[in-house]
Design a protein around this nucleic acid. Structure first.
Lengths: 185, 185
DNA sequence: TCGCTAACGCAAAATATTTGCTTTTGTAGG
DNA sequence: CCTACAAAAGCAAATATTTTGCGTTAGCGA
């Protein structure tokens, strides 16, 4: 079932959405994944299970909905004065978040959902890089190839995080960046 | 629950495993995903649901188990006479399989499983490339950088398939390959 | 062939999901 | 501000699923 986007924006609906999301976030940190059931979320949120079933359909879709919210960047990437510095700083934080156990779990939730959650997350990432690219252009630096960063920096890192056990280290991260944008530029 | 690896190798256990796997494959092509339940699989396979619950734990783990089997390559990559040709031919088939609706679904199933199914699939891919690399070495061609192929060819393709809607086209695929191994070499 | 025990079957109990109907409450229009 | 409408929530009964205890089957080694 697709996640409903256009529901009543204010009042009770909004309160239910908030309390259900909060309940999921709370329980994710308190109980095992196998105990994270819709009835449990409903009880914690103070709503009836049928409300969640009707609005989100399945636990997977609810988890994906929450994960997308949490993966949404809270602000712009830090401005370090150069494109390389911006990319380096942003990437370090990105890797830390994505490689952490909660980050991996959220990414799994997002991928498991068939209703367009993954493209949304990919778009978040791209937008951050676009911001960095725009800043570089404003400074008169050589253009940042956004697709190259997505394909040859972001993709290998995400692939390794999701398909291998070992998290990418600092050296690996810098090497990828060097490949699309030589150090110091 | 982890997928059990060491169970009695022959006889009834093996028959149950086979019929359950076959039932899953059949149903994947016949019914909607939401109707693909453990009781349905059990009925089709001619076993009781509790057998499946005890052996695989959850539907997700069962689906991942089946998906790993289906994603396992049936043979070695074709020998075209050159590393570039081998990579090109192998990659075309890889993209076709992974970008198809069943391929995407299987990959999702594999990623959703927490019990090491994803590294296994990644290893399948790497091994195919290793075979191509070994052949290239035997021919006296310049070395094939296996990590580079994984990071800069496989990863971007898989990332695009899983995180974007649009499947990677032929031109894109060749461009990635050109980047790690110039055309014709 | 015999004994041991892993794996299966069965059925009851516990949980989770769906569904029809009622009630509450945002929202738009007067 | 009030009223009518409909979306969303609550409630509870019906259904479906998952879990569990226990008896049975059948691989496997001696």
């Amino acid at each position: 079932m697709a996640i409903k986007e256009s529901l009543r924006p204010g009042g009770r609906s909004a309160r239910v959405q908030t309390s259900v999301h909060q309940a999921v976030k709370d329980l994710l940190g308190e109980v095992e994944r196998s105990e994270l059931t819709i009835p449990a979320v409903a009880a914690r949120a103070g709503v009836t299970p049928s409300t969640i079933y009707r609005r989100w359909g399945t636990l997977q879709d609810l988890l994906a909905d929450v994960a997308v919210e949490r993966l949404r960047p809270d602000g712009e990437p830090a401005d370090t004065g150069s494109a390389r510095g911006d990319l380096d700083a942003w990437l370090e934080q990105f890797v830390d978040e994505m490689a952490s156990a909660p980050g991996r779990a959220m990414t799994r939730d997002v991928l498991a959902c068939t209703a367009g959650a993954a493209p949304q997350c990919s778009a978040f990432t791209r937008r951050q890089i676009e911001t960095i690219a725009a800043r570089a252009a404003a400074r008169g630096e050589p253009a940042v190839d956004i697709d190259a960063v997505m394909d040859h920096v972001v993709a290998p890192i995400v692939y390794r995080i999701m398909f291998d056990e070992s998290p990418p280290g600092d050296a690996y991260r810098r090497a990828l960046l060097d490949r699309v944008r030589p150090a110091g530029r």
